Simulated scan of single mutants.
Amino acid sequence: MAYKMLKHDVYSVGAVDWDRRLFDELIKIPDGTSYNSFLVRGVDKTALIDTVDPSKTHELTANLQKLDVTLDYVIVNHAEQDHSGSIPKILESYPDAQIVTNSKCKELLKEFLLIPEEKFLTVNDRETLSLGDKTLEFIYTPWVHWPETMATYLKEDKILFSCDFFGSHFATSDIFVTDEAAVYTAAKKYYAEIMMPFRINIQKNLEKLKDIQIEIIAPSHGPLYNNPEFILDAYKEWISDDTKNEVIIPYTSMHGSTKKMVEHLADALIDKGISVKPLNLAVTDIGDVALALVDAPTMVIASPTVLIGPHPNVVYATYLANALRPKLKFISVIGSYGWGGRMLDQITGMLTNLKAEILEPVIIKGFPKEEDFKKIDVLADEIVKKHTMLK
C-alpha cells in the first residue's frame, strides 16, 4: 500500500492485508485488515509510530525509503507483534533510532523481540517528546486490550494515534472512513471480540480523552476517523450499562428437540414484543455471537445432552460469553436429554464471571410435549417481566 499524507509532514506508511482471514488463529476477519503505521516528520526529529505485522515489513520499509527519511524514534504503543513485529528490521535499516515506549511495554519487547536495554527511551503518562515543530504526548490506556497499551497524541495536528483502541478489521484503500455502516459493524465486532472484557477500563480511558481536542483518530487497524465523534459515540454506547429489548439464543440441536424448544421460545418472545436472535452454532461464526452479546440483556443457552454434558459447540459459546464479560442481566438454559446427564450443571458452572441472574431453566426428556411448551411460555413471561423492569 502506497503511503498517504494525513496532514503536513504526517503520513500513513503501513500496509493493507487484503487476504488475511484469521487473526490470532482465533478471530475470523472476512474483510481482511490493515496494519497502520504513521510517520511524523518534525523540523528537528522524525518519529515512526508503530510498525506492521512481520509479513508486511517490506511494504513499510518501501514507504519509508520513498519518503527518504532518517528515523530518530520508533514509538511503540503496544507490544503485540502485529504492531511491533517489524521493529528488528527497522532497527537494521535505522540503527540510530530509539524505541520510545512505557516501562511495561519495554519489558515485553525485550522478551518478545530481544531488543537490548540501551535502545529504549521510556516515557511516563502524559509525558511529551518534541520533534521541533511537532509535539508527541503519550497517554497511558492500560487494558485496551493489554496491560501496557498507550496512545500517542500529536498536539499541533490534533491527531490521536490510538493503537487498537477504536480499531476495526476492515481492509480498504480509503485512508478515512467512507462507508460508515460497514465500518460501524466491523468496529463493533472488533470491540466485541477484543475489547469487551475490559469495558470498565475502557470507560476510564475514554474519560482520559474527553478534554483532548481531536480532529483525527488513527487506530492501528482499519480506516481512520476524520469525524471522531462517530466512533467515540459508538464506544460510549457499547460500554454503557444500557441494553436493548433483545434476547439472544445460542443453540445447537442434534435431532430436533432443542431446535423445537428454541423456535417456541422465540415465537413466544416475539409475540410479546421482544427482539430475538437465535444463533445456530452449527453454522454461525462465533464472532457473531460475540457481536450479539454487546447489546443484549438476556441470553438463553440451548443445548442437547452429549454423553453427560452440553454439546461442544455450546461449551465453546458459553466459555466465550464468560470470557468476554458482557453486560448481560439475565441468563437461562433450555435443552433436552435422552437418558440423563449433567448438562445444566456444567453450563451454569462455566458462567462464573457473569453477574447475571439465572432464570428458571427448562430441561426436558426427549421431544418437547405440551407441558414442556407451557414451561417455556412461563420462561418467556419471566423474561418479559425482567425486561419491563429494565426500562
Rank of each mutant, 00 (worst) to 15 (best):
T61C: 13
A380K: 10
T46P: 13
D241M: 01
A218P: 06
K375Y: 02
P95G: 11
T258V: 12
Y73R: 09
T70G: 12
K385L: 08
P278K: 04
Y94K: 04
I216C: 03
F138I: 10
I175H: 00
F367Y: 15
H264Q: 02
Y94P: 03
D31A: 09
L113P: 05
D53V: 03
G273H: 13
S220N: 07
E370A: 12
I87V: 14
P219F: 10
V283T: 15
D288Q: 10
D285F: 06
D9G: 04
R325T: 13
V378K: 15
V262T: 02
G366P: 00
K208S: 11
S240L: 12
T348Q: 07
W339I: 14
F170N: 02
V13H: 05
V289G: 02
I383W: 13
V378Y: 12
R342D: 12
I239A: 01
P228Q: 05
E180Q: 07
M195Y: 11
K365Y: 02
V16K: 08
I286F: 12
K45A: 11
T101K: 00
N322R: 10
P88S: 10
M261H: 04
A234Q: 12
I159T: 08
A97N: 09
V294P: 02
D288R: 09
V100I: 08
G287N: 14
V183A: 05
T185W: 09
D377F: 03
G42Y: 10
K110I: 13
G349H: 12
E92P: 01
L71N: 09
I217G: 07
L6C: 14
I27N: 10
S220E: 08
K155D: 05
L136K: 01
A2H: 05
A321F: 02
T298C: 11
V144W: 00
V378M: 12
G42F: 05
G32N: 01
I90Q: 03
I90S: 03
I301P: 03
K355T: 10
L359V: 09
K365M: 11
G287F: 11
D125N: 15
K210C: 01
L131E: 05
Y316P: 00
K119M: 06
G132A: 13
N77T: 01
L26K: 15
H8S: 07
I270P: 00
L39R: 13
K386I: 07
M343A: 14
W339Y: 14
L113W: 09
T252F: 13
A266N: 02
A266P: 07
A302M: 06
Y73G: 02
V333K: 06
I217V: 06
S162E: 09
Y73E: 06
W143E: 06
K119L: 01
K391H: 13
K272D: 01
V177H: 03
I286W: 00
E80C: 04
F138C: 02
P368H: 00
